[in-house]
């Protein structure tokens, strides 16, 4: 408990410095106030958004899409990754396709996604799925390939075969590495949620950016950006805590 307070102290100080710099920049620069809002104006916009409930509605929508896209990406990528990691010969055929698809920004698919699924929840979910899927798939395959062979030898010695071998030995042995992939994918997915909502949705924190721009409300724009950053930070912290807890339950070093 004391440790978290100490850690939070650093965060609080660094945020205060950031806001102070923002205010300083606002004071010394002679930008039009409509183009570069002060922290105070952004805060007022935030309160305005929160007061009539629009902010929470948008956040709720975004979180729902994020949960749907990210969770389905993680589950399917881990399952497929475990299988492909075990059947490493099959993965040799799959790998070129993955390597071809991976460098394509998920947003490049946006036109197709909107054409096929229309505007709404699905495009954002699909974008998040694509963004989260590949990092998790590749770390899972690598994690399975990197399992200490002694675990497999011990399993053979005791006659443990598939499918038990998978969930009793391979998955837990590979889990620390898989978790790092899941973690990495969280940030990427959150980034692409915003991109997806900017193009393919009429709601959510990403859509709010477009909406504020159209109304020339830079204060709302900036307030929304801060909210997006904060939610990303909170999601990351929550995942880190969950990860630590699982690793500890499994006798990890953490």
């Amino acid at each position: 408990m004391k440790k978290t307070i100490l850690k939070a102290r650093y965060a609080v100080i660094s945020f205060i410095v950031l806001i102070a710099l923002w205010q300083l920049l606002y004071t010394v620069s002679d930008f039009n106030e409509a183009l570069f809002p002060s922290p105070f104006k952004a805060l007022r916009a935030l309160i305005e958004l929160a007061a009539d409930g629009t902010l929470f509605r948008h956040i709720g929508t975004s979180l729902y899409r994020f949960a749907a896209g990210y969770c389905s990406a993680v589950v399917s990528a881990v399952l497929l990754g475990l299988v492909l990691g075990w059947f490493s010969k099959a993965f040799r055929f799959v790998d070129p396709i993955v390597q071809l698809l991976r460098p394509i920004s998920p947003t490049a698919w946006m036109p197709f996604i909107v054409l096929w699924f229309g505007i709404g929840d699905v495009p954002a979910i699909v974008i998040i799925f694509i963004a989260g899927f590949f990092p998790v798939l590749l770390t899972t395959v690598a994690a399975v390939a990197n399992i200490d062979p002694i675990y497999l030898k011990v399993s053979r010695s005791f006659g443990i075969r598939q499918p038990q071998l998978m969930w009793k030995v391979i998955f837990p042995a590979a889990f620390p590495q898989i978790a790092s992939g899941i973690h990495l994918a969280l940030g990427t997915s959150w980034i692409f949620l915003v991109a997806g909502e900017m193009v393919g949705a009429q709601s959510g924190v990403g859509y709010l950016i477009i909406d504020a721009r159209n109304d020339l409300r830079t204060d709302i724009l900036l307030a929304d950006i801060v909210v997006i950053g904060l939610i990303g930070l909170i999601l990351d912290t929550l995942l880190k805590m969950a990860e630590k807890r699982i690793l500890r339950a499994w006798g990890g070093a953490a």
Binding site: I150, Y151, K153, V154, S157, F158, G159, I160, Q164, K168, V169, P172, A173, F175, W250, G251, G252
Partner: peptide
């Protein structure tokens, strides 16, 4: 499992407790 090997680096499963490690072979 009629002839079991014990290795120099133990080969215990770190995510299982001592009890669960010993139960591993019995689970089959």
């Amino acid at each position: 499992d009629r002839y079991v090997t014990i290795f120099q680096n133990y080969g215990l499963l770190p995510w299982r407790s001592v009890q669960k490690n010993v139960e591993l072979g019995l689970e089959q």
